[in-house]
Design a protein around this nucleic acid. Structure first.
Lengths: 213, 213
DNA sequence: AACTGTGAAAACTTTCACAGCC
DNA sequence: GGCTGTGAAAGTTTTCACAGTT
Protein backbone atom coordinates (compact mmCIF):
# COMPACT_ATOMS: atom_id res chain seq x y z
CA UNK A 1 0.00 0.00 0.00
CA UNK A 2 1.05 3.51 0.78
CA UNK A 3 0.68 5.44 -2.44
CA UNK A 4 1.13 9.19 -2.42
CA UNK A 5 -2.33 10.72 -2.33
CA UNK A 6 -2.70 14.03 -4.10
CA UNK A 7 -4.07 17.14 -2.52
CA UNK A 8 -6.96 17.22 -4.94
CA UNK A 9 -7.93 13.68 -4.01
CA UNK A 10 -7.93 14.55 -0.31
CA UNK A 11 -10.01 17.62 -1.05
CA UNK A 12 -12.55 15.51 -2.89
CA UNK A 13 -12.64 12.97 -0.07
CA UNK A 14 -13.73 15.83 2.20
CA UNK A 15 -16.50 16.70 -0.21
CA UNK A 16 -17.65 13.09 -0.43
CA UNK A 17 -17.65 12.91 3.36
CA UNK A 18 -19.75 16.04 3.71
CA UNK A 19 -22.29 14.60 1.32
CA UNK A 20 -22.24 11.19 2.99
CA UNK A 21 -23.01 12.74 6.36
CA UNK A 22 -26.00 14.51 4.81
CA UNK A 23 -27.16 11.25 3.28
CA UNK A 24 -26.74 9.41 6.56
CA UNK A 25 -28.81 12.04 8.34
CA UNK A 26 -31.52 11.53 5.74
CA UNK A 27 -31.40 7.80 6.32
CA UNK A 28 -30.01 6.71 2.95
CA UNK A 29 -28.38 3.29 2.97
CA UNK A 30 -26.63 3.11 -0.35
CA UNK A 31 -25.08 5.64 -2.67
CA UNK A 32 -23.52 5.18 -6.10
CA UNK A 33 -20.36 6.78 -7.39
CA UNK A 34 -22.53 8.64 -9.87
CA UNK A 35 -24.62 10.22 -7.11
CA UNK A 36 -21.52 11.15 -5.12
CA UNK A 37 -20.06 12.68 -8.25
CA UNK A 38 -23.10 14.72 -9.17
CA UNK A 39 -23.23 16.72 -5.99
CA UNK A 40 -19.49 17.19 -5.54
CA UNK A 41 -18.54 18.26 -9.04
CA UNK A 42 -16.46 15.18 -9.72
CA UNK A 43 -17.01 12.37 -12.23
CA UNK A 44 -18.13 8.91 -11.20
CA UNK A 45 -14.86 7.38 -12.39
CA UNK A 46 -12.99 9.86 -10.26
CA UNK A 47 -15.01 8.97 -7.20
CA UNK A 48 -14.30 5.26 -7.69
CA UNK A 49 -10.62 5.88 -8.37
CA UNK A 50 -10.25 8.13 -5.33
CA UNK A 51 -11.84 5.55 -3.04
CA UNK A 52 -10.01 2.62 -4.61
CA UNK A 53 -6.70 4.20 -3.62
CA UNK A 54 -7.55 3.24 -0.05
CA UNK A 55 -9.35 -0.06 -0.54
CA UNK A 56 -12.48 -1.65 -1.94
CA UNK A 57 -15.42 -0.25 -0.06
CA UNK A 58 -18.24 -0.69 -2.54
CA UNK A 59 -20.55 -3.51 -3.50
CA UNK A 60 -20.58 -4.23 -7.19
CA UNK A 61 -23.97 -3.79 -8.68
CA UNK A 62 -25.26 -1.90 -5.65
CA UNK A 63 -23.08 1.04 -4.64
CA UNK A 64 -21.44 2.07 -1.37
CA UNK A 65 -22.97 1.60 2.09
CA UNK A 66 -23.48 5.14 3.36
CA UNK A 67 -22.75 4.41 7.03
CA UNK A 68 -19.66 2.32 6.41
CA UNK A 69 -18.18 4.67 3.84
CA UNK A 70 -18.78 7.62 6.15
CA UNK A 71 -16.77 6.11 8.98
CA UNK A 72 -14.14 4.85 6.55
CA UNK A 73 -13.61 8.36 5.21
CA UNK A 74 -13.60 9.80 8.72
CA UNK A 75 -10.83 7.34 9.58
CA UNK A 76 -8.83 8.12 6.45
CA UNK A 77 -9.11 11.86 7.03
CA UNK A 78 -8.25 11.53 10.71
CA UNK A 79 -11.62 12.79 11.87
CA UNK A 80 -12.45 10.06 14.34
CA UNK A 81 -10.92 12.25 17.03
CA UNK A 82 -11.63 15.91 17.71
CA UNK A 83 -8.58 18.06 17.00
CA UNK A 84 -7.40 20.63 19.51
CA UNK A 85 -6.93 23.93 17.69
CA UNK A 86 -5.09 27.08 18.73
CA UNK A 87 -5.93 30.44 17.19
CA UNK A 88 -3.32 33.18 16.94
CA UNK A 89 -4.71 36.64 16.30
CA UNK A 90 -8.23 37.54 17.42
CA UNK A 91 -8.87 40.39 15.02
CA UNK A 92 -11.83 40.42 12.67
CA UNK A 93 -11.09 37.15 10.96
CA UNK A 94 -9.82 35.41 14.08
CA UNK A 95 -12.91 36.43 16.04
CA UNK A 96 -15.19 35.24 13.23
CA UNK A 97 -13.46 31.85 13.33
CA UNK A 98 -13.77 31.68 17.10
CA UNK A 99 -17.49 32.22 16.82
CA UNK A 100 -17.88 29.81 13.93
CA UNK A 101 -19.87 26.88 15.30
CA UNK A 102 -19.12 24.56 12.42
CA UNK A 103 -15.51 24.22 13.48
CA UNK A 104 -16.38 22.34 16.67
CA UNK A 105 -19.26 20.56 15.03
CA UNK A 106 -17.00 19.21 12.33
CA UNK A 107 -14.20 18.06 14.61
CA UNK A 108 -12.00 21.09 15.28
CA UNK A 109 -12.29 22.56 18.77
CA UNK A 110 -10.59 25.86 19.49
CA UNK A 111 -8.99 25.40 22.90
CA UNK A 112 -6.62 28.38 22.98
CA UNK A 113 -6.48 31.88 21.54
CA UNK A 114 -3.69 34.46 21.47
CA UNK A 115 -3.30 38.14 20.74
CA UNK A 116 -0.93 41.02 21.43
CA UNK A 117 -3.60 43.68 22.11
CA UNK A 118 -3.72 44.45 25.84
CA UNK A 119 -7.48 45.04 25.74
CA UNK A 120 -8.09 41.61 24.25
CA UNK A 121 -5.74 39.65 26.49
CA UNK A 122 -7.54 38.08 29.45
CA UNK A 123 -10.95 38.53 27.89
CA UNK A 124 -13.03 35.49 27.24
CA UNK A 125 -14.37 35.25 23.70
CA UNK A 126 -16.82 32.52 22.73
CA UNK A 127 -15.75 30.47 25.71
CA UNK A 128 -12.00 30.78 25.14
CA UNK A 129 -9.73 33.01 27.23
CA UNK A 130 -7.36 35.09 25.10
CA UNK A 131 -3.74 34.57 26.20
CA UNK A 132 -0.86 36.94 25.51
CA UNK A 133 1.23 35.98 22.51
CA UNK A 134 4.24 35.85 24.82
CA UNK A 135 2.76 32.76 26.48
CA UNK A 136 2.33 30.96 23.19
CA UNK A 137 4.72 28.09 23.83
CA UNK A 138 3.51 27.41 27.35
CA UNK A 139 -0.20 27.52 26.54
CA UNK A 140 0.23 25.44 23.36
CA UNK A 141 1.83 22.75 25.47
CA UNK A 142 -0.62 23.01 28.38
CA UNK A 143 -3.63 22.86 26.10
CA UNK A 144 -2.05 20.22 23.87
CA UNK A 145 -2.74 22.24 20.71
CA UNK A 146 -2.37 20.04 17.64
CA UNK A 147 -3.33 22.39 14.82
CA UNK A 148 -2.88 26.17 14.81
CA UNK A 149 -4.68 28.84 12.83
CA UNK A 150 -2.66 31.96 12.12
CA UNK A 151 -4.84 35.04 11.70
CA UNK A 152 -2.29 37.77 12.40
CA UNK A 153 -1.21 40.68 10.23
CA UNK A 154 1.07 39.42 7.45
CA UNK A 155 4.26 40.83 8.93
CA UNK A 156 3.85 38.74 12.09
CA UNK A 157 2.79 35.51 10.42
CA UNK A 158 6.16 33.95 9.61
CA UNK A 159 7.52 34.49 13.12
CA UNK A 160 4.36 33.14 14.72
CA UNK A 161 4.52 30.07 12.49
CA UNK A 162 8.11 29.39 13.59
CA UNK A 163 7.16 29.67 17.23
CA UNK A 164 4.14 27.41 16.78
CA UNK A 165 6.26 24.77 15.10
CA UNK A 166 8.86 25.03 17.85
CA UNK A 167 6.12 24.65 20.47
CA UNK A 168 5.12 21.34 18.92
CA UNK A 169 2.10 22.18 16.79
CA UNK A 170 1.61 19.58 14.04
CA UNK A 171 0.04 21.64 11.27
CA UNK A 172 -0.79 25.28 10.49
CA UNK A 173 -3.65 26.93 8.65
CA UNK A 174 -2.57 30.40 7.58
CA UNK A 175 -5.06 33.20 7.00
CA UNK A 176 -2.48 35.94 6.74
CA UNK A 177 -2.00 37.19 3.18
CA UNK A 178 1.59 36.04 2.98
CA UNK A 179 3.07 32.78 1.86
CA UNK A 180 4.42 30.65 4.69
CA UNK A 181 6.36 27.63 3.63
CA UNK A 182 6.35 24.41 5.56
CA UNK A 183 8.23 25.11 8.79
CA UNK A 184 10.51 22.18 9.42
CA UNK A 185 8.22 19.23 8.94
CA UNK A 186 5.06 21.14 9.87
CA UNK A 187 2.73 21.44 6.88
CA UNK A 188 1.13 24.83 6.21
CA UNK A 189 -1.95 25.64 4.16
CA UNK A 190 -2.82 29.19 3.25
CA UNK A 191 -6.33 30.55 2.76
CA UNK A 192 -6.38 33.93 1.03
CA UNK A 193 -9.71 35.47 0.13
CA UNK A 194 -8.17 38.06 -2.13
CA UNK A 195 -6.33 35.36 -4.03
CA UNK A 196 -9.63 33.63 -4.74
CA UNK A 197 -11.21 36.90 -5.84
CA UNK A 198 -8.27 37.53 -8.14
CA UNK A 199 -8.86 34.13 -9.71
CA UNK A 200 -12.41 35.19 -10.47
CA UNK A 201 -11.20 38.57 -11.66
CA UNK A 202 -8.94 36.81 -14.15
CA UNK A 203 -11.91 34.93 -15.57
CA UNK A 204 -14.07 38.05 -15.80
CA UNK A 205 -11.25 39.97 -17.40
CA UNK A 206 -11.20 37.59 -20.32
CA UNK A 207 -9.28 34.53 -19.20
CA UNK A 208 -10.91 31.47 -20.67
CA UNK A 209 -14.02 30.69 -18.69
CA UNK A 210 -14.73 27.12 -19.58
CA UNK A 211 -12.75 25.46 -16.89
CA UNK A 212 -13.51 26.74 -13.46
CA UNK A 213 -15.81 25.61 -10.76
CA UNK B 1 -2.89 34.03 -27.74
CA UNK B 2 -5.65 32.20 -25.96
CA UNK B 3 -4.04 29.12 -24.51
CA UNK B 4 -5.94 27.50 -21.69
CA UNK B 5 -4.40 28.76 -18.47
CA UNK B 6 -4.69 26.44 -15.51
CA UNK B 7 -6.06 27.41 -12.16
CA UNK B 8 -2.72 26.75 -10.51
CA UNK B 9 -0.98 29.08 -12.92
CA UNK B 10 -3.45 31.87 -12.17
CA UNK B 11 -3.00 31.26 -8.46
CA UNK B 12 0.76 31.58 -8.83
CA UNK B 13 0.38 34.77 -10.89
CA UNK B 14 -1.44 36.26 -7.89
CA UNK B 15 1.43 35.28 -5.64
CA UNK B 16 3.98 36.77 -8.01
CA UNK B 17 1.95 39.95 -8.14
CA UNK B 18 1.78 40.24 -4.38
CA UNK B 19 5.52 39.90 -4.18
CA UNK B 20 6.12 42.33 -7.03
CA UNK B 21 4.05 44.99 -5.30
CA UNK B 22 6.17 44.54 -2.17
CA UNK B 23 9.32 44.84 -4.25
CA UNK B 24 8.05 47.94 -6.00
CA UNK B 25 7.26 49.56 -2.67
CA UNK B 26 10.83 48.81 -1.58
CA UNK B 27 12.13 50.42 -4.76
CA UNK B 28 13.55 47.30 -6.42
CA UNK B 29 13.97 47.65 -10.18
CA UNK B 30 14.72 44.13 -11.30
CA UNK B 31 13.79 40.70 -10.08
CA UNK B 32 14.86 37.29 -11.34
CA UNK B 33 12.66 34.23 -11.77
CA UNK B 34 14.71 32.60 -9.04
CA UNK B 35 13.87 35.36 -6.56
CA UNK B 36 10.19 35.28 -7.49
CA UNK B 37 10.24 31.53 -7.05
CA UNK B 38 11.92 31.53 -3.66
CA UNK B 39 9.31 33.59 -1.92
CA UNK B 40 6.27 32.09 -3.59
CA UNK B 41 7.08 28.42 -3.25
CA UNK B 42 7.43 27.85 -6.98
CA UNK B 43 10.51 26.92 -9.03
CA UNK B 44 12.28 29.38 -11.27
CA UNK B 45 11.39 27.37 -14.36
CA UNK B 46 7.78 27.47 -13.33
CA UNK B 47 7.86 31.24 -12.94
CA UNK B 48 9.35 31.65 -16.40
CA UNK B 49 6.91 29.19 -17.94
CA UNK B 50 3.91 30.83 -16.27
CA UNK B 51 4.90 34.27 -17.51
CA UNK B 52 5.86 33.05 -20.98
CA UNK B 53 2.28 31.82 -21.48
CA UNK B 54 1.33 35.48 -21.81
CA UNK B 55 4.36 36.95 -23.53
CA UNK B 56 8.05 37.75 -23.16
CA UNK B 57 8.38 40.22 -20.35
CA UNK B 58 11.92 39.63 -19.15
CA UNK B 59 15.34 40.80 -20.20
CA UNK B 60 17.78 37.96 -20.78
CA UNK B 61 20.74 38.16 -18.51
CA UNK B 62 19.05 40.68 -16.21
CA UNK B 63 15.60 39.58 -15.02
CA UNK B 64 12.19 41.21 -15.06
CA UNK B 65 11.53 44.94 -14.58
CA UNK B 66 9.54 45.12 -11.36
CA UNK B 67 7.32 48.04 -12.35
CA UNK B 68 6.49 46.76 -15.81
CA UNK B 69 5.82 43.21 -14.69
CA UNK B 70 3.59 44.47 -11.90
CA UNK B 71 1.32 46.35 -14.26
CA UNK B 72 1.43 43.50 -16.78
CA UNK B 73 0.21 41.04 -14.16
CA UNK B 74 -2.42 43.50 -12.96
CA UNK B 75 -3.68 43.67 -16.53
CA UNK B 76 -3.67 39.92 -17.00
CA UNK B 77 -5.51 39.36 -13.73
CA UNK B 78 -8.01 42.10 -14.48
CA UNK B 79 -6.93 44.24 -11.55
CA UNK B 80 -6.47 47.52 -13.36
CA UNK B 81 -10.02 48.37 -12.39
CA UNK B 82 -11.61 48.10 -8.93
CA UNK B 83 -14.30 45.44 -8.84
CA UNK B 84 -17.70 46.17 -7.35
CA UNK B 85 -18.52 43.43 -4.87
CA UNK B 86 -21.83 42.44 -3.26
CA UNK B 87 -21.92 40.51 -0.01
CA UNK B 88 -24.86 38.26 0.82
CA UNK B 89 -25.12 37.29 4.47
CA UNK B 90 -23.74 39.58 7.15
CA UNK B 91 -23.26 36.99 9.89
CA UNK B 92 -19.92 36.40 11.54
CA UNK B 93 -17.98 35.64 8.41
CA UNK B 94 -19.79 38.18 6.28
CA UNK B 95 -19.22 40.92 8.84
CA UNK B 96 -15.53 40.01 9.10
CA UNK B 97 -15.22 40.34 5.34
CA UNK B 98 -17.03 43.69 5.37
CA UNK B 99 -14.52 44.99 7.87
CA UNK B 100 -11.54 43.53 6.08
CA UNK B 101 -9.59 46.48 4.76
CA UNK B 102 -7.43 44.46 2.40
CA UNK B 103 -10.37 43.80 0.11
CA UNK B 104 -10.69 47.42 -0.94
CA UNK B 105 -6.96 47.94 -0.84
CA UNK B 106 -6.41 45.08 -3.24
CA UNK B 107 -9.07 46.03 -5.72
CA UNK B 108 -12.37 44.64 -4.42
CA UNK B 109 -14.77 47.21 -3.02
CA UNK B 110 -17.88 46.00 -1.22
CA UNK B 111 -20.67 48.25 -2.49
CA UNK B 112 -23.71 46.28 -1.33
CA UNK B 113 -24.63 43.94 1.50
CA UNK B 114 -27.70 41.79 2.10
CA UNK B 115 -29.25 39.86 4.95
CA UNK B 116 -32.61 38.46 6.03
CA UNK B 117 -32.35 39.42 9.72
CA UNK B 118 -34.70 42.35 10.45
CA UNK B 119 -32.31 43.79 13.03
CA UNK B 120 -29.49 43.91 10.51
CA UNK B 121 -31.48 45.31 7.58
CA UNK B 122 -31.15 49.06 7.28
CA UNK B 123 -28.14 49.22 9.55
CA UNK B 124 -24.94 50.57 8.17
CA UNK B 125 -21.92 48.33 8.69
CA UNK B 126 -18.43 49.50 7.77
CA UNK B 127 -19.90 52.11 5.50
CA UNK B 128 -22.32 49.83 3.67
CA UNK B 129 -26.07 49.81 4.27
CA UNK B 130 -27.49 46.31 4.68
CA UNK B 131 -30.36 45.71 2.25
CA UNK B 132 -33.06 43.07 2.61
CA UNK B 133 -32.41 39.91 0.64
CA UNK B 134 -35.72 40.49 -1.12
CA UNK B 135 -34.19 43.53 -2.86
CA UNK B 136 -31.22 41.55 -4.14
CA UNK B 137 -31.91 41.85 -7.85
CA UNK B 138 -32.73 45.55 -7.72
CA UNK B 139 -29.75 46.56 -5.58
CA UNK B 140 -27.33 44.38 -7.55
CA UNK B 141 -28.37 46.23 -10.68
CA UNK B 142 -28.41 49.68 -9.10
CA UNK B 143 -24.99 49.23 -7.56
CA UNK B 144 -23.63 47.46 -10.63
CA UNK B 145 -22.32 44.53 -8.58
CA UNK B 146 -19.86 42.49 -10.64
CA UNK B 147 -18.70 39.85 -8.16
CA UNK B 148 -20.75 38.46 -5.28
CA UNK B 149 -19.63 36.82 -2.07
CA UNK B 150 -22.07 34.32 -0.59
CA UNK B 151 -21.75 34.02 3.18
CA UNK B 152 -25.15 32.60 4.04
CA UNK B 153 -26.03 29.38 5.85
CA UNK B 154 -25.47 26.41 3.54
CA UNK B 155 -29.16 25.72 2.94
CA UNK B 156 -29.68 29.19 1.45
CA UNK B 157 -26.53 29.30 -0.66
CA UNK B 158 -27.70 27.57 -3.83
CA UNK B 159 -30.84 29.67 -4.12
CA UNK B 160 -28.92 32.88 -3.48
CA UNK B 161 -26.38 31.90 -6.13
CA UNK B 162 -29.17 31.39 -8.68
CA UNK B 163 -30.66 34.76 -7.91
CA UNK B 164 -27.29 36.47 -8.12
CA UNK B 165 -26.59 34.92 -11.50
CA UNK B 166 -30.05 35.93 -12.71
CA UNK B 167 -29.43 39.49 -11.50
CA UNK B 168 -26.35 39.69 -13.69
CA UNK B 169 -23.45 39.05 -11.34
CA UNK B 170 -20.40 37.78 -13.24
CA UNK B 171 -18.71 35.57 -10.66
CA UNK B 172 -19.38 34.17 -7.20
CA UNK B 173 -17.14 33.46 -4.24
CA UNK B 174 -18.89 31.00 -1.96
CA UNK B 175 -18.13 30.80 1.75
CA UNK B 176 -21.02 28.53 2.61
CA UNK B 177 -19.96 24.97 3.38
CA UNK B 178 -21.80 23.50 0.44
CA UNK B 179 -20.72 22.91 -3.11
CA UNK B 180 -22.27 25.29 -5.60
CA UNK B 181 -21.70 24.41 -9.19
CA UNK B 182 -21.26 26.98 -11.87
CA UNK B 183 -24.65 28.67 -12.32
CA UNK B 184 -25.22 29.06 -16.04
CA UNK B 185 -21.98 30.62 -17.21
CA UNK B 186 -21.17 32.25 -13.87
CA UNK B 187 -18.05 30.74 -12.35
CA UNK B 188 -18.12 29.87 -8.64
CA UNK B 189 -15.23 29.34 -6.28
CA UNK B 190 -15.75 27.90 -2.83
CA UNK B 191 -13.67 28.70 0.24
CA UNK B 192 -14.22 26.24 3.06
CA UNK B 193 -12.13 26.53 6.21
CA UNK B 194 -13.15 23.13 7.49
CA UNK B 195 -12.10 21.55 4.21
CA UNK B 196 -8.64 23.02 4.62
CA UNK B 197 -8.44 21.81 8.19
CA UNK B 198 -9.49 18.35 7.06
CA UNK B 199 -6.64 18.36 4.59
CA UNK B 200 -4.25 19.04 7.45
CA UNK B 201 -5.99 16.43 9.57
CA UNK B 202 -5.33 13.89 6.84
CA UNK B 203 -1.63 14.66 6.93
CA UNK B 204 -1.45 14.48 10.72
CA UNK B 205 -3.41 11.25 10.77
CA UNK B 206 -0.66 9.56 8.81
CA UNK B 207 -1.44 10.37 5.21
CA UNK B 208 1.97 11.90 4.86
CA UNK B 209 4.13 8.77 4.45
CA UNK B 210 6.12 10.85 2.00
CA UNK B 211 8.35 8.32 0.40
CA UNK B 212 8.05 5.40 2.71
CA UNK B 213 7.80 2.12 0.79
C1' DA C 1 -29.30 -4.58 -15.08
C1' DA C 2 -26.67 -1.87 -12.18
C1' DC C 3 -22.56 -0.65 -10.46
C1' DT C 4 -17.64 -1.25 -8.71
C1' DG C 5 -12.62 -1.68 -9.36
C1' DT C 6 -8.88 -0.96 -12.29
C1' DG C 7 -5.43 -1.30 -15.98
C1' DA C 8 -4.45 1.48 -20.02
C1' DA C 9 -4.81 5.77 -22.61
C1' DA C 10 -5.25 10.54 -22.73
C1' DA C 11 -4.71 14.97 -20.93
C1' DC C 12 -2.44 18.00 -18.31
C1' DT C 13 1.40 20.07 -15.42
C1' DT C 14 6.03 20.38 -13.98
C1' DT C 15 10.84 19.91 -14.58
C1' DC C 16 14.89 19.68 -17.40
C1' DA C 17 18.29 21.48 -20.14
C1' DC C 18 20.10 24.44 -23.23
C1' DA C 19 20.19 28.03 -27.10
C1' DG C 20 20.15 32.85 -27.20
C1' DC C 21 20.91 37.29 -25.25
C1' DC C 22 22.74 40.98 -22.09
C1' DG D 1 28.49 35.03 -15.74
C1' DG D 2 23.78 35.55 -15.23
C1' DC D 3 19.37 35.06 -16.79
C1' DT D 4 15.21 34.37 -19.96
C1' DG D 5 12.33 31.66 -23.12
C1' DT D 6 11.07 27.30 -24.60
C1' DG D 7 10.87 22.73 -26.81
C1' DA D 8 11.23 18.10 -25.12
C1' DA D 9 11.02 14.75 -21.31
C1' DA D 10 9.23 13.32 -17.10
C1' DG D 11 5.75 13.08 -13.94
C1' DT D 12 1.04 13.43 -12.37
C1' DT D 13 -3.98 13.36 -12.67
C1' DT D 14 -8.09 12.37 -15.11
C1' DT D 15 -10.82 9.82 -18.18
C1' DC D 16 -11.99 5.70 -20.67
C1' DA D 17 -13.71 1.34 -21.11
C1' DC D 18 -14.64 -3.04 -19.66
C1' DA D 19 -14.13 -7.40 -16.83
C1' DG D 20 -16.15 -8.90 -12.72
C1' DT D 21 -19.77 -9.06 -8.99
C1' DT D 22 -24.31 -8.84 -6.93
Amino acid sequence: MSVRISDSTVRRLSLYLRMLRDLRRQGAELVSSRELAERTGATSAQVRKDLSLFGSFGKRGRGYAVGDLTTTLEDILGLSHTWRVGLVGVGKIGAALLGYRDLARRGFEVVAAFDVEPDKIGREMFGVRVAPLADLARVVREERVEIAIVATPPEAAADVAERLAAAGVGAILNFAPTEIHRVGDVPVRTVDVVLELEGLSYLLAGGRRDDVD
